[in-house]
């Protein structure tokens, strides 16, 4: 990937003007509360201590407010990213399957199919740290340490050619990368931006159909077939699978054999369905990794899990 942007050009990015929001017109509505009751009028609840707040106050703001102590390097980030993120987002942030692309797409925003990534579209590095901290890795949110989050954030910046491979992210270096390249291109909401008139007759000369979903009668008939077959299979199992097992088994997260990967399933299937169901119900530590009992979803019934295993086996034979 080309290093089209270096640190100095990052620094000269203009400061984003604080937005002005155009508000929807307020609707007058009866307020049940009498105004000016004053602070603490009800006195409900308990006052929040600094320690209680610290446990939940996870957001990071564009200027770095909220950043924890510590640091993380691109170098450390690489290993962590490979381990915890690459299975879904790809080793280069290119995105596996339909998982989000995290890098690339520069200069595509005006194209027919824009690719919006951290490097091409996002405005603030704080959003990246904040989001990884609150929501990633997808199956285990809030599992990363502050230092790991610094390192992975630095690495995603690196994947976007925004920092060098010796970069270390911390409160001290924050300002160097706080604003992402596309930062100046966000604008306030100017709506209403269409100004249609209420015409009642002779509003246009002619009408042409310009677009319809492309379908044919044969495809409809064929569609009926497929779904009947799928239903004769195991709808319920598919449902449980999607809800409880797909997070690992779709892409092989944590060493899970991937759905439909016949090679990975061959030896397992040879153990017999009963053993596989037992392993799914009770959990199983194999060479590839750890299959948690019921995929960690103890709320599922044995029947549900059994149906999911059966679905997986049909799909993976």
């Amino acid at each position: 990937m080309s290093r089209y942007l270096n640190m100095s050009s990052l620094k000269i990015l203009s400061l984003a003007a604080l937005l002005t929001v155009s508000m929807g017109s307020g609707v007058a509505m009866a307020k049940d509360t009498v105004k000016d009751k004053g602070v603490g009028h009800y006195g409900y609840g308990k006052s929040a201590t600094a320690e209680e707040i610290a446990g939940w106050d996870i957001d990071i703001r564009p200027d770095g407010r909220g950043l924890p102590a510590g640091s993380g390097s691109v170098e450390d980030g690489e290993m962590l990213y490979e381990d915890k993120c690459a299975s879904c987002h790809g080793s280069f942030g290119e995105g596996v399957g339909k998982y989000p692309v995290l890098a690339g797409g520069q200069d595509t925003l005006t194209e027919e199919r824009p690719e919006k990534t951290v490097g091409s579209f996002w405005a603030h590095t704080s959003t990246l740290y904040d989001y990884i901290r609150r929501a990633m890795p997808f199956p285990q949110p809030e599992s990363l340490s502050d230092e790991e989050t610094y390192a992975i954030t630095a690495y995603v910046l690196y994947l976007n050619d925004l920092v060098e491979d010796d970069f270390v992210l911390s409160q001290e270096t924050w300002d160097e990368v706080a604003k992402l390249p596309n930062n100046p291109n966000f604008v306030p909401d100017p709506r209403p931006d269409t100004h249609a008139k209420r015409c009642m007759s002779d509003c246009k000369k002619e009408v042409k159909i310009v677009s319809e979903p492309t379908i044919s009668a044969e495809e409809v008939a064929a569609a009926d077939d497929t779904v009947v077959k799928a239903a004769a299979g195991n709808e319920e199992g598919a449902g449980v699978y999607n809800g409880a097992c797909a997070a690992c088994h779709n892409l092989g997260v944590a060493g899970a054999p991937r759905l439909g990967d016949t090679a990975a399933w061959k030896a397992r299937i040879a153990q017999g369905e009963e053993t596989l169901i037992k392993h799914a119900l009770e959990g199983f530590q194999g060479d590839a990794g750890m299959m948690p009992a019921k995929g960690g979803r103890m709320d599922l019934s044995d029947e549900d899990v059994t149906a999911a295993v059966k679905f997986m086996l049909v799909e993976s034979k």
Binding site: V21, L109, N185, V187, P188
Partner: peptide, 10 residues
Amino acid sequence: DGKAREFTFV
């Protein structure tokens, strides 16, 4: 034009 509108709430 490549610009993006933010906080388009309504």
